[in-house]
Simulated scan of single mutants.
Amino acid sequence: MQALRLVGTKDMEHDDWLEWRKRGIGGSDVAAICGLSRYKSALEVYLDKLGEIPPIPDNPKMKAGRILEPVVADWFAEETGIRVQKQNYIFQHKDYPFMLANIDRWVPGENAGLEIKNTAEYSRNNWFDGQTEIIPTEYQLQANHYMAVTGADKWYVAVLIGGWDFQWRVIERDDNLIRNLITIEENFWTQHVVAGVLPEVKAQDTDLMNYMYHSSAPTSINISEAYYDLIKRLLDTKQVLKQAEEAHEDVKNKVKQLMGENELALWQGEKFCSWKTNARGSRVFKIIGGL
């Protein structure tokens, strides 16, 4: 392994570990910075690194991940015959100090690592396309980030789906992707985190906008003509949204007419939508399945 050992984590308090993570970009940050994360945005990563938002409070899902990590690691070793070692360090890229790696396991003798995941049954489709095994984009980026930091040739991913279905995949090193990741991460770190410049706000940042600007002042701002395209997009998308809502309501009412007094509609034998009376006496329409 070519990475530097930034700090040991064996007896480190969780709050201290969170503080060390703010010193650079970790594997779980990469997809967000690239705009490819389903879970967080570049703005959230930026605010986290600057300590401007509180850390995510511990929850049962996070606790389950910690408890099951050694179980899944042992399962991987038993299933594959590949020996793995726990690494109690935060690693740092030897040339790019803002690139950090807190890896789950190292595979001695293979120049490889192991990332461990625990997910719910409803996320099964993230790991399969029909019968074909796939790997979520976030984890492909995370693994290549770790390979960039450590110099590894490949990275294993082990996942426990629904508490019982063990799956594992291999991600081979992609040097072209790694070069692009280094460029993206360096730009994000220097041009945003170090410079104190917010990254572009996205649709998933609604809660962060409300957190950052939680109260209003009795003042006004004059938006300059430089933002003409932005204002036009706001008005245009509002109109498109209105038209989409009207079209959706139109077809929904047509389906309600087909359903009549029935509270459940089937399509090709499968539950498609419901229109049930709730405790207040109102009927609530819900789409259950897809085509």
Rank of each mutant, 00 (worst) to 15 (best):
M1Y: 14
L6M: 14
D11L: 14
D11T: 15
M12W: 08
E13M: 11
D15F: 09
A32G: 06
L36I: 06
R38D: 11
V45D: 01
G51E: 02
P54S: 13
P55S: 05
N59V: 07
N59F: 06
P60M: 07
M62C: 07
G65N: 02
I67E: 09
V71W: 10
V72M: 02
T80S: 12
G81Q: 10
R83N: 07
V84P: 00
Q85H: 12
P97D: 09
F98V: 03
M99F: 02
L100S: 03
N102A: 11
V107A: 02
P108G: 10
E110S: 13
N111D: 07
N111E: 05
L114A: 02
T119R: 03
E121N: 09
I135V: 15
Q140D: 11
A143T: 04
M147F: 05
T150C: 11
D153H: 08
A158R: 00
L160H: 09
I161Y: 12
I161C: 12
G163K: 04
W164V: 12
D165Q: 12
W168K: 09
R169E: 05
R169L: 06
E172C: 06
R173K: 13
R173G: 00
L177V: 00
I178K: 01
I178P: 01
R179Y: 06
I182H: 09
T183H: 09
E186C: 05
N187D: 13
T190V: 10
H192I: 01
V194H: 04
V201K: 03
L208A: 08
S215E: 15
A217T: 11
P218A: 14
I221W: 03
L230A: 09
K232V: 01
L235T: 03
K238H: 08
Q239N: 06
A244W: 12
A247Y: 00
D250H: 14
K254N: 01
Q257L: 07
L258N: 11
M259V: 00
E261M: 02
N262R: 14
E263M: 13
L266C: 07
W267A: 13
E270H: 08
E270D: 08
K271Y: 10
K271V: 13
F272L: 08
F285K: 07
K286Y: 15
I287Q: 15
